[in-house]
Design a protein around this nucleic acid. Structure first.
Length: 877
RNA sequence: GGGCGUUUGGCUCAGUUGGUUAGAGCAUCUCCCUUACAAGGAGAGGGUCGGGGGUUCGAAUCCCUCAACGCCCA
């Protein structure tokens, strides 16, 4: 592929009144017709640049945060395309998960019941909003999982159209023929296939273990989905009675309602107060259950009385103690967040009083139980003083409203290095193989991997999502045999074990003793999202495409999901392909509101982008976005959009000038680049060559913002200084030869600048390009500095700088004298050092004309000085 | 409590390996309707680079320390 500047047409015309109106619609449909951004799949891997686009969540609407980060990616995509790469730039939609599930439930008044069979003839329900009032009060209709997913597809398709339209208006150079949705069959097939491979390699396993449980969602929650929230609580000082001495041992707890679940007391091994008691026992108040006093380093002598009650389970430290001290399991909280209604055996053993006390708590929520038990303790004289209010961090599911409980249950896990130092080391190594932009983001990855304390919990007790492609045989009592799961055939994927029948069985055997039952859980949404590279590149389904695009070149994403999305994707690829999923990670910052707070739906400070695109135009909005440094949080600033718009208008006008020169009738005069003979023109081109070097290096380092800043800064110099200096000569004041030099340089410079701006301002650059060039600027070659240097020949950037400096001095003199800029100058006397004086001398004729000066003298001196003498009166005044 | 990042004129930001009077744009003020551009142009004023200490001939730029803010994790 040639990298020389494309040859202009010879029949160009320049619009009389160029404008920015309607560019988006016009060029978007043109690009679509021309297939400008189609992936060329004849390209081999080294000629491809592939992008693992983040699939936005399809619920609600896009906001400026999307516009911001997706623009960053697009500038890189456009740069790589101009560098001759076949850019693989698909778009995904994340319509998997709770938000979609809830929307479909409310919109259609339905509820998923996975036990129901699929009804292929089910009519689409009338949306709730279109139903009569009295009908809206009816209970939701239960439908099968497959029918439910079909409704999800139906509803999200509409949202996806709106998203695509907005992204098109923004000018993303996505190949819109390549989209995927995370609930579609393809994605579910990939997720299930990857899971089966993990299972075959023993990377996926099930275990009965304590899990953090959201009692409202009735669902297990993974480490990555946790957050701490500061919550009010109170320390309750409660005596346990020592079985030997009869003395009270005071513990302090924030969760007195769990006394019935107490399995031990614990103190620090070095704590002299309690050392004599280790190995002896106490009885719990109210229930009289005998528990042992144990020693463990995690007990904090400074906290409360220094001795703590271990329950199964009150918090995650209890889990550690329970595991390391091999304690009994005595759960009393059930999956709905209430105290179990049946009296547990260890309580029943305590006699009628214990049973009576427990029965008062049974069936209550933990919150109600706490109030009750405080009363009971007080009545029994087992509460020392009043509870002391404190504020402490409590674990929540990030989308949940009530504190998490800890329950034991059977779940699927995926190995991620959380319990395996060797795997952890390998994943850390992957992190250092990856090129991070900016580099310091790697540390977040490393911190996360080093802080893992368990494998990845991937099963969720939800209805909607990708099912595990697994059934279990039932024994003669109808109990599932979890140790011998029946895996689905790969060719049959995707499957829904709730309605599909495993091979070797008949549907009539479902849930019958000796028959089979489907795994009831679905996968964590990250289990699908972590496979976006495999989904996009056709892993396992289109080996030819996979070969050309994987591992991908770039994963663009935001920094707060390094621990989730980026890490989990690295895990899946490491396990499946023994490689990184991509070579580069481009991490975008956030958009902050003017108070420097992150824009988020929950804060209500979100700005939607549609009106911005209408008001300022896509190029201007992109200009603002591309000004945000990689990885840096950026303040939302409409002022930047105004500047972007001004820049676009300036481009139109400067182009109109440059291309309108040289002929009276407006038709084109194409100059051979060898026509560039004047020192000023050569100096400008030499300067431009440096700019091309700079911006190319910046883009190669994924620093689009730097590339934009450099280009913009050059462009304003170009307009304010160069155009003014050559204007009269370009019109022909010093003959055809000198004019041709200017015109040729202007054409080459404009061609170069349009291509440098194209990744940022795709619409206005394409518009101008279409005036005088063949094809699209977006598939034109990226500018070549060596070509410019060749044309610049002996050009010295200093000559351009000197010309600009002296012209500025003349302008300053006129402005300070309150004269117009065309006011004549009698004399400009310049004194300067050797090299600077010589550089100026070479362009002195251009300076003289631009300043409208009678004469310009250049003398050698040790110090620079410019003296401007204005004419007394303008000619003809 | 740990990690990462940020702190430059009224506002939003540049400042690449330490080096000439710290740069833009917006805003402010002054001037100019000059045939690419009045949704424009030319110019001016305004900061000593969060505080303190150190290294150096020389630091916004390197080191130490403190502070504020943001994010992530305990």
């Amino acid at each position: 592929m040639s990298t020389a500047a494309p040859t202009p047409r010879t029949d160009w015309t320049v619009p009389e009144k160029p404008g920015l109106e309607d560019l988006e619609t016009r060029w978007d449909s043109h690009w679509e017709e021309q297939g400008t951004y189609r992936f060329d799949r004849t390209a081999t891997r080294d000629g491809v640049f592939s992008i693992d686009t983040p699939p936005p969540t399809v619920s609600g609407s896009l906001h400026v945060g999307h516009v911001f980060s997706y623009t960053h990616t697009d500038t890189i995509a456009r740069y790589q395309r101009m560098r001759g790469k076949s850019v693989f730039y698909p778009m995904g939609w994340d319509d998997n998960g709770l938000p979609t599930e809830r929307r479909v439930q409310n919109y259609y008044g339905v509820q998923c019941d996975p036990s129901l069979p699929y009804d292929p003839a089910m009519p689409t329900p009338t949306p709730m909003s279109e139903r009569p009032k009295e009908e809206q009060k009816k209970l939701p209709v239960n439908i099968s999982r497959r029918n439910f997913i079909e409704l999800c597809n139906l509803l999200t398709t509409e949202d996806e159209k709106a998203f695509e339209q907005l992204f098109r208006t923004l000018g993303l150079s996505v190949d819109w023929s390549r989209t995927y949705a995370t609930i579609d069959d393809h994605c579910r097939r990939v997720a299930q296939r990857a899971f089966l491979h993990n299972l075959d390699r023993d990377e996926a396993y099930q275990a009965e273990a304590p899990v953090l449980w959201d009692v409202d969602f009735r669902c297990a929650v993974a480490q990555a989905e946790l957050e701490d929230r500061e919550m009010p609580g109170a320390y309750h000082r409660i005596p346990f009675v020592h079985t030997g001495t009869g003395e009270p041992i005071f513990i302090e707890t924030t969760r007195p309602e769990l006394i019935a679940a107490c399995v031990s007391l614990v103190a620090h091994p070095d704590d002299e107060r309690y050392q004599p008691l280790f190995g002896t026992t106490v009885r719990s108040p109210l229930f009289g259950v005998e528990v042992e006093i144990r020693a463990h380093e995690l007990a904090d002598p400074e906290k409360g009385s220094g001795i703590a009650m271990i329950c199964t389970f009150g918090d995650i430290t209890d889990v550690t103690w329970w595991r390391e001290l091999q304690l009994d399991t005595r759960p009393i909280v059930t999956d709905n967040g209430r105290i179990a209604s049946e009296v547990p055996e260890w309580i029943a053993a305590g006699g009628p009083d214990a049973i009576a006390a427990y029965e008062k708590l049974a069936g209550k929520t933990v919150k109600q139980a706490q109030v009750l038990i405080v009363e009971l303790l007080r009545e029994a004289g087992a509460l020392d003083g009043e509870p002391k209010p404190i504020t402490h961090p409590v674990k929540f599911y990030e989308k949940g409203d009530r504190p998490l409980e800890i329950l034991t249950s059977r779940q699927w896990y995926l190995r991620n290095g959380g319990r395996d130092l060797e795997l952890r080391g390998a994943l850390l190594e992957r992190g250092s193989e990856l090129h991070w932009h900016p580099g310091h983001m790697r540390v977040r990855y490393e911190n996360w991997v080093n802080g893992l304390n368990g494998d990845w919990l991937v099963s969720r007790q939800r209805f909607f999502g990708v099912s595990f492609p697994i059934w279990y045989p039932l024994d003669a009592d109808g109990q599932p045999m979890h140790d011998s799961p029946i895996r689905a055939e790969e060719a049959a994927l995707p499957v829904d074990p709730a309605t599909d029948t495993p091979q070797g069985y008949d549907e009539s055997q479902r849930d019958q003793p000796g028959g089979f039952t489907g795994d009831p859980d679905v996968m964590d949404t990250w289990a699908t999202s972590s496979l976006t590279p495999q989904i996009a590149t056709g892993w396992g389904e289109d080996p030819d495409l996979f070969e050309r695009t994987f591992p991908m070149d770039l994963r663009p994403q935001a920094h707060e999901i390094i621990r989730t999305w980026l890490f989990s994707t690295a895990v899946r690829s490491h396990l499946e392909h023994d490689s990184l999923p991509w070579r580069n990670a481009g991490i975008s910052g956030w958009v902050l509101d003017p108070d420097r707070k992150k824009m988020s739906k929950s804060k209500g400070n979100v700005v939607t982008p549609l009106h911005l695109l209408e008001q300022y135009g896509a190029d201007a909005v992109r200009y603002w976005a591309a000004s945000g440094r990689p990885g840096t949080d950026t303040t939302f600033d409409e002022g930047q959009m105004k500047i972007g718009r001004r820049l676009s208008i300036k481009l139109l006008n400067a182009s109109r000038f440059a291309l309108g020169l040289g002929s009276a009738d407006g038709s084109a005069v194409v100059h051979d680049a060898s026509a560039v003979t004047e020192p000023l023109d050569r100096a400008m081109l030499a300067d431009l060559a440096r700019l091309v070097d700079d911006t190319t290096a910046a883009f190669d380092g994924y620093d689009y913002a730097r590339a934009l800043e450099r280009t913009e800064s050059f462009f304003w110099q170009f307009c304010d200084q160069y155009l003014e200096l050559v204007k009269t000569r370009a019109y022909g004041s010093r003959g055809d030869h000198a004019a041709a030099s200017a015109q040729a340089a202007l054409q080459l410079a404009l061609s170069t600048l349009l291509r440098l701006f194209a990744p940022f301002l795709p619409f206005v650059t394409e518009e101008i390009w279409s005036w005088w060039q063949e094809g699209s600027v977006h598939t034109a070659p990226w500018p070549d500095a060596s070509e410019l240097r060749e044309r610049a020949a002996d050009g010295d950037p200093l000559a351009f700088a000197m010309g600009a400096e002296v012209l500025s001095a003349a302008r300053r003199a006129k402005t300070e004298a309150k004269r117009s800029l065309k006011w004549p100058v009698e004399l400009i006397a310049v004194a300067d050092t050797g090299a600077r004086a010589a550089a100026l001398q070479s362009v002195v004729a251009d300076v003289q004309e631009a300043a409208n000066a009678e004469s310009v003298t250049v003398d050698l001196a040790a110090e620079s000085a410019v003296t401007v003498t204005l004419a007394a009166e303008p000619d003809g005044a």
